[in-house]
């Protein structure tokens, strides 16, 4: 129990894993490459979280405070791992800038994801028109308290389009996965925009709506029934401008007619990419990536959080698009697996 468990990444999964381990008296070393803990919800300034409705800075910020005040957790920010070797129960690794090798009984990778960079879909206008923004930017507009505005001239939008599946389900750009959370997040944002700006119409352009599980009525139905958000079945082909407003072009597949509709603000629901550092992570830690570039999971049913390398665990969005609450659950599951492997390294964790 004296050798700290190494947790790489201080987002929801890493914070949860570190807290779970420390709760049992296990020492933890929590490493994050960013200058502070919290991961995407904190670093990208998310607003209200699904499904609790709590502000990210309260919910995830609370998890950060809990870890920072825990004497069993050593925190190393602005730090990466440069070398990693050894076998389950006796891993050796080196932190960037250190010369001394450290030891870990178990290691959990909570290295998360990267937001899709929408300049990879230039036809959708991001980076060309200032009023084409991402869901992350709208989260920031809401969480900063500055409100939803057009970035070109600061005006309050009268009509907003949210385009789903930007950077997801798109073979043309090598993203063949569904990012899982964008439908729900977009419905949530649409409701927040309608609440803040009751005069503003919000249209969501979709191929399918995947507000899975209990998000169906709480987000999809609620956004239609209470907030009058309109859903249009069309994958938008192009965003241009008439010099005054943005023009969204596509085909409305339910009426089989082309559309060119003016909007003040276009929001791209950007997907979850594999962490841009995954190739390096894979080579340093000696784990395999699955075909999309996320960390390959090991056993699906017999052991929680396993990678292709025995004793090396994974939790959260590092191994595929994941929700915050499931990342937290996976962090706890990986902590359990780590403790089991420390206590009985020969047996496979349950």
């Amino acid at each position: 129990m004296n050798t700290p468990v190494l947790v790489v990444g201080g987002g929801p999964a890493g914070l949860s894993a570190a807290h779970s381990l420390a709760s049992t008296g296990q020492k933890v070393l929590l490493v994050d490459k960013a200058d502070r803990l919290g991961g995407a919800p904190i670093l990208s300034g998310y607003a209200k979280l699904v499904p609790s409705g709590e502000w990210a800075k309260d919910a995830i910020g609370g998890m950060v405070q809990r870890i920072e005040s825990n004497p069993l957790v050593e925190i190393q920010t602005r730090t990466t791992i440069t070398e990693f070797s050894g076998a389950p129960g006796a891993f050796k690794y080196m932190l960037a800038g250190e010369e001394q090798t450290r030891e870990a009984g178990a290691t959990i990778l909570c290295t998360g994801f990267s937001h899709f960079d929408p300049v990879n879909k230039p036809e959708l206008g991001f980076g060309i028109f200032p009023d084409v923004v991402t869901t992350t930017q709208v989260e920031q507009m809401l969480s900063s308290g500055k409100g939803v505005k057009c970035l070109s001239d600061g005006r309050v939008p009268e009509r907003v389009a949210i385009l789903l599946c930007v950077g997801s389900r798109d073979r043309q750009i090598g993203r063949e996965w569904c990012s899982k959370i964008c439908c729900t997040v977009s419905a949530n944002l649409a409701m927040e925009i309608r609440e803040a700006l009751p005069q503003c119409s919000v249209y969501i352009y979709y191929m399918d709506i995947r507000t899975f599980g209990l998000y169906e009525d709480a987000y999809y139905w609620e956004s239609q029934e209470k907030y009058r958000v309109k859903y249009i079945k069309s994958r938008i082909a192009e965003v241009t401008s008439d010099g005054k407003r943005l023009i969204v072009k596509g085909e409305d597949t339910l009426v089989k007619r082309p559309i060119t509709i003016p909007f003040d603000l276009v929001v791209q629901a950007i997907g979850m990419d594999p962490n841009v550092d995954n190739a390096r992570i894979a080579s340093i830690f000696g784990v395999e990536l699955e075909r999309h570039g996320f960390l390959q999971r090991g056993a699906t049913y017999r052991a929680m959080g396993s990678t292709t390398r025995p004793g090396l665990l994974v939790a959260g969005a590092a191994s595929g698009p994941e929700t915050i609450d499931d990342s937290i659950a996976q962090g706890q599951a990986a902590a359990m697996a780590a403790l089991t492997s420390l206590k009985a390294p020969a047996t496979e964790a349950a």
């Binding site: 119409s201 009058r228 082309p258 060119t260 509709i261």
Partner: peptide
């Protein structure tokens, strides 16, 4: 043109 060029935001209301 067959292109739909605008919506009537208030029709549903």
């Amino acid at each position: 043109t067959r292109v739909v060029q605008d919506y009537n935001d208030s029709l549903q209301e």
